[in-house]
Design a protein around this nucleic acid. Structure first.
Lengths: 126, 126
DNA sequence: CTTAAATAATACCTCCAGGTATCATTTATG
DNA sequence: CATAAATGATACCTGGAGGTATTATTTAAG
């Protein structure tokens, strides 16, 4: 959708170039809309469009909507109060890792992905 | 078990100080033995002992036996041949993250954990 | 206004990693 | 030897994330 960010894409159209299950794709599109990453237009000729500038949507934004950001937030050993009461054995090392991941994900935007070409981030061959 | 590395610990004994399900613990101990991280002694008065010097067992070793090292090895976008045929959009950035994780896990040994004290890596309060 | 083409809401199903259950084997001890 | 206390092998079960099904709503166009 970033290829033409002003246009409206129907779920059907997106489906054709993505090879993930149609109904699941629909669910994700709705989720992304609810979370403000996409704008949806209902009714006939409706569809979805990217809601902001490409440069303002990061991989982290998307993951936080659609995926699972546990690695980024959890203590390595799973301690609930890690760093509040007492640090776990590798707290600092692991916090650095998490920060690294965070940096990469939050600094990589759709604009950047678009630049490197669709085939470098769209998986349509499984 | 690193607290006294020369001693034999029965699964029952380990169980008492760990609060994870007994049968699951047994399974893990067997797995760790099979993979050479523990030495097991069968029969009455049997048990387990750490198989090597504490400094030669890393978190990575343990995870590779008992856990799931996908994050460390997989392409961010899940491309199978990433970096062989063509790099994905964030290949280099993500490779750096993976290497960072690898560094931390492979350089953190049981010896180091032991130094920072059992309560900083043993989770017995869930 | 009716129809058809789209999205929205909600409830349900399925697969598999994480966890269990059962039985077999090994060995110290009296 | 028999027993009990330990580990080993193997097959099975289950909760919940990932995926599916069904029905409701919205809207352009003739």
């Amino acid at each position: 959708m970033a290829i033409d960010e002003k246009r409206l894409y129907s779920s059907n159209e997106v489906f054709k170039s993505l090879k993930i299950p149609f109904r699941y794709l629909r669910k994700l599109l709705i989720l992304l809309s609810k979370n403000g990453l996409l704008v949806s237009v209902q009714g006939k000729n409706g569809g979805y469009r990217i809601a902001k500038n490409l440069v303002d949507i990061s991989l982290l934004d998307i993951i936080q909507t659609v995926g699972d950001d546990q690695v980024i937030n959890k203590c390595f050993f799973g301690f609930e109060g890690c760093a509040f009461e007492k640090k776990c054995a590798i707290h600092d090392k692991w916090a650095a890792v998490r920060e690294h991941i965070n940096d990469v994900l939050s600094s990589t935007t759709l604009a950047e992905l678009k630049e490197s070409g669709p085939q470098s981030f769209i998986s349509n061959n499984n």
